[in-house]
Design a protein around this nucleic acid. Structure first.
Lengths: 232, 232
DNA sequence: CGCGACTTTGACCCTGATCAAAATCCGTGG
DNA sequence: CCACGGATTTTGATCAGGGTCAAAGTCGCG
């Protein structure tokens, strides 16, 4: 948990990801595969239903993943930050759209070649499976949030998630960075921007958070947010 | 898609699952691992946060998976039927509770031993990864449902899901089997039992479905349900 | 400094929740 | 086979959390 993440010298992937399991030879082969990619804000990294030819490893910036309904309603299924893995679709197509929020740098791997490397180094595949299982658990938490939590609980859970992941990346969780817009938050929590805004001011008035500016929030105490988030 | 599922003679696992990738020697080793288990309705197969010592393969019956909030609010994260895999938690603990709805039979594998087998037969692990990725895509669809669909769209999506999986198992999708209670449906869709009930009668009045009895529904046409479910 | 985009706040509304009661289902025992 | 009783489901009446529409306030970049 308290492991300080480090940039892997060979491929500049944070060692939070599967890359850190590699050594020497393996690492070199992985490095030969990848190309470095850069995406500006509001740029699409890939589209839902597009051929899943690449997988990515975010090295900086932030990304949102989303799905759309026929009439344009949007559900953001997740946010990615430095160290997160992207495009874990071993099937033919991506199941969501990925779009940069802040300027993003990422390592891009051709999926086919990466899979061949899996055959050579099975523990790489093991690591991939572990990541998929973690994501699955996170997805189930999010279902609980979307299906059963109140607006206030949703927002508290969201802030807590940001704080925890910030910590996990080795950044201070003193002030919470909120790179995404209110609209993104709303579509992530199954709310409207108005409700997100109102709920944040409510939390502020109840002295649970301080709004430093639109993109920076300070939590007075994470424990209060935790209790809220768990429905206690 | 139209593959007729068959019970694998060796271990009685439906060939819809990873077991069908095995042959001869591999199959024997897998068979030695498993024990057959049976669970009565309303029986818990495992609890959230329990040590994840086993993984399961459902061979008959139906299962619900759920998570709880501190005050008892419940979110059902999925239903499992014959051929479905259960307990895909490679971490130490299960991330949800699994409970039998109808009488369940399942093959039970000790996780540690199964993982050792993975080292011997890497394509088994590949298959596992594939299943995890599929589940992940399903989880994202469910997030879209929970966060952005109306009650009517949720119920339509639910019926469609049941019909499709029934078909996938090789059963007729003429009449949809609904083994779970209204309360289970509600907790799966993020609604209340009253809303589920009202929505079903509404769909009946609009002649989209016929309620044969509480556990059997006939869809007049799946295309209408599909349009509803996709928000068109 | 000015303009467009984003966010907040306010007033009102609607979908789905809650509370309550009637109807139906289903297992049990006479 | 039917009568009973608890559990589940349906239906009805009312309520409220969060959505919608509208306007004012901020932010941020040129």
């Amino acid at each position: 948990m308290a492991v300080r993440p480090q940039i892997c010298e060979a491929c500049s992937i944070k060692d939070l990801t599967f890359c850190s399991a590699l050594h020497g030879d393996e690492h070199d082969q992985l490095r030969q595969l990848l190309t470095h990619a850069h995406y500006d804000p509001h740029t699409t990294i890939f589209h839902e239903a597009e051929d899943a030819d690449y997988v990515f490893n975010v090295t900086s910036g932030s990304v949102k993943l989303y799905k759309l309904l026929g009439d344009g309603r949007r559900q953001i299924t997740g946010f990615l930050f430095a160290g997160d893995f992207l495009g874990l679709a071993l099937n033919a197509n991506y199941s969501y759209t990925a779009e940069a929020i802040e300027p993003v740098t990422a390592c891009r791997f051709p999926r086919q070649k990466l899979e061949k490397l899996f055959d050579k180094f099975p523990h790489l595949e093991k690591r991939m499976l572990g990541m998929a299982v973690d994501e699955l658990a996170a997805a189930q938490d999010q279902m609980l949030l979307l299906g059963r939590k109140t607006a206030k609980e949703k927002v508290a859970s969201f802030l807590l998630m940001l704080a925890r992941r910030q910590e996990h990346r080795g950044e201070s969780s003193e002030t919470i960075n909120v790179p995404m817009s209110r609209s993104d938050i709303a579509d992530y929590l199954g709310l409207t921007i108005e409700t997100v805004s109102r709920t944040l001011t409510q939390l502020r008035k109840e002295a649970m958070i301080t709004l430093k500016d639109n993109r920076h929030i300070e939590a007075v105490g994470l424990d209060m947010l935790e209790d809220l988030a768990e429905g206690l």
